[in-house]
Amino acid sequence: MRVLIVDDHAVVRRGIRAYLEVLDDMEVAAEAADGQEALTRLDAMAAHRELPDVVLIDLLMPRMDGATAIGMIKTSHPDVRVVVLTSFGEMERVHAALAQGAAGYLLKDAEAGEVVAAIRAAAQGEVFLDPAVARGLTQEIVSPPTGLASLTSRERDVLVLVAEGRSNQQIADELVISERTARTHVSNVLRKLRLTSRTQAALFAVRQGLVPPRA
């Protein structure tokens, strides 16, 4: 299976490449240093019908972060599977990556065998989660937070902007994310707060003291 490695640290890319290339069923199709370069490489490979099976991607990178890149990859190349390999295991980042279409989420302290297992699982249409991430998601199901406490810090930012009357595109511009990511955040806010409209969200924000009442 063909893999595109996306990480802003060259030493990380080289290490992953060196390990994968000794495996009979793995081929490193290309490398990219950020999300924007990954999209450029994917478009070029698509033109020659040589898309990779899996993209292995970091989250925090310059120019375009991993979560935004995942959403754009899945929009442009829906058959390509994406696995996150990052140092950050906060549930906010996990939710963002999975919401954008990631088929796996691993932390960088994972064993090499786990990375390979995640790539193989993704290529077969399965989802592979780091044990620590899986525990966090399970805990949320068993004891889910409610109300304002259920929102991530980014979702609180989005709630405030919604209450200020911003559109999805304006929210995206303010937070330097894609419009699709902003739309996903707004949907998550409404779902978690069990609201059905942006007006209800604005009223909730006022009641919680997040924004002053409009004159």
Rank of each mutant, 00 (worst) to 15 (best):
V54Y: 10
T75H: 15
G35I: 02
L85K: 06
T68D: 15
D24I: 00
H48T: 15
L23F: 02
P78F: 04
M61V: 08
D58V: 05
R49Q: 15
P62G: 08
V83N: 07
E27H: 11
D79W: 09
L51R: 06
A44D: 14
L85R: 05
M61Y: 03
H77W: 06
F88S: 11
D58P: 01
D65L: 02
P78S: 10
V54L: 12
V22A: 07
V54F: 10
L51N: 05
L60T: 14
D53E: 13
L85V: 12
V80I: 02
M61R: 08
I73S: 04
D58N: 09
H77L: 06
D25N: 10
M61G: 08
A69H: 04
R41V: 15
P62H: 03
A69S: 11
T75P: 04
V82K: 08
I70Q: 02
G66L: 02
T40N: 15
V84R: 01
A29W: 05
L23W: 01
P78I: 09
V55A: 05
L85Q: 03
D34L: 00
T68I: 09
E27M: 09
G66P: 00
K74M: 13
A67Q: 10
S76C: 14
L60W: 12
L39Q: 08
D53H: 14
I73E: 09
P62F: 04
V80F: 01
T75Y: 13
A46Q: 12
R81L: 06
G71D: 04
T40G: 15
I57A: 13
P52Q: 08
V54D: 11
D43V: 12
L56R: 09
P62N: 06
I73T: 01
E50S: 14
E21T: 03
L60G: 06
V54S: 10
K74Y: 11
G89V: 03
G89L: 05
R49Y: 12
V28G: 03
A32I: 01
F88G: 05
L23A: 09
M26I: 05
A33M: 09
T86G: 05
V80W: 00
T40P: 06
